[in-house]
């Protein structure tokens, strides 16, 4: 066989493509330089040493029996927080299923972009803003928290659901259509059995996120453990802050582990 020219491991790029890559690299470098220059790295010294604060945060609440009685109340508040997240993600799942179908390109065609745009808009607004709006409209308390969590979660799981639906095997759908099934039957017997495990898995994952999110909702009065947390930080009551953080860390870890185990078995 005739010998080829020298074989290069990568395809040779055209001059235009090289220029393009260089331009991108220059822009990226500029962004980094601006970012570093505009961030002040100075540290202002405080009257209290950091070590002392850390000791009051994480050691004192654990070793001083004086604080032990406070945990019960914190755990109660944490359970309320988890309940907010659970109710929120349940409502979100119920709404996200139809929305997900509407946003799936393979079922709805170009119309799906409308639903996708709506979901993107929802996701762009932070939970805290929703929480503030709902506290203003339905009053202080966990109800506002549930509403804020559910709306925000629809934004994410609706989109994930749509992506799951878009990745299904469409051949069984063809079979149901070919046997005289109507549109709803195609969805019920062709699409749903293929997507349900992933739907449940994504809802659980979102529940993990929502538990973490609900812990800060109390800051704006939307219920849960966030209210005492923000109060304690304002008062520099580091022992209480520490107690709350310990409870949050323990519960969030437990939930993450459990939900992770369930998700692993689903698919």
């Amino acid at each position: 066989m005739e010998n080829r020219d020298k074989v290069k491991i990568n395809q040779l790029f055209s001059r235009k493509k090289k220029m393009y890559t260089a331009a991108i690299l220059i822009i990226l470098a500029a962004v980094y330089i601006v970012a570093f220059l505009s961030t002040p790295f100075t540290i202002r010294s405080s009257s209290v040493s950091t070590l002392e604060t850390l000791r009051r945060l994480f050691i004192e609440p654990l070793i001083n029996p004086e604080y032990y009685s406070g945990y019960l109340e914190m755990i109660e508040l944490m359970l309320e927080t988890i309940a907010i997240a659970y109710a929120g993600v349940t409502v979100a799942t119920i709404i996200a299923v139809p929305v997900g179908f509407l946003a799936a390109r393979n079922l709805l065609g170009p119309l799906s972009y409308l639903a996708k745009a709506l979901l993107n808009a929802i996701r762009a607004i932070p939970e805290l803003i929703f929480a503030i709006i709902f506290v203003a409209s339905v009053g202080i308390g966990p109800y506002a928290g549930v509403l804020a969590i559910s709306i925000n979660s629809v934004g994410m799981i609706g989109k994930l659901y749509a992506e799951v639906i878009e990745s299904i095997d469409e051949e069984p759908l063809e079979a149901i259509r070919a046997s005289g099934g109507n549109r709803i039957q195609v969805i019920w017997y062709g699409v749903l059995p293929q997507v349900l495990p992933e739907f449940v898995s994504y809802s659980l994952y979102r529940f993990e996120i929502d538990v973490r999110a609900s812990t800060v909702l109390g800051i704006v009065g939307a219920g849960g453990i966030g209210a005492p947390l923000i109060l304690a930080t304002w008062q520099r009551n580091w022992e209480d802050v520490g107690m709350i953080l310990i409870v949050v860390v323990v519960f969030v870890s437990i939930i993450d582990i459990l939900s992770g185990q369930i998700r692993k078995r689903l698919t």
Binding site: P172, A175, Y189, G190, P193, Q194, P197
Partner: peptide, 8 residues
């Protein structure tokens, strides 16, 4: 390709 739903 049979076109059955494998998860059912």
């Amino acid at each position: 390709s049979y076109n059955i739903v494998k998860r059912m």
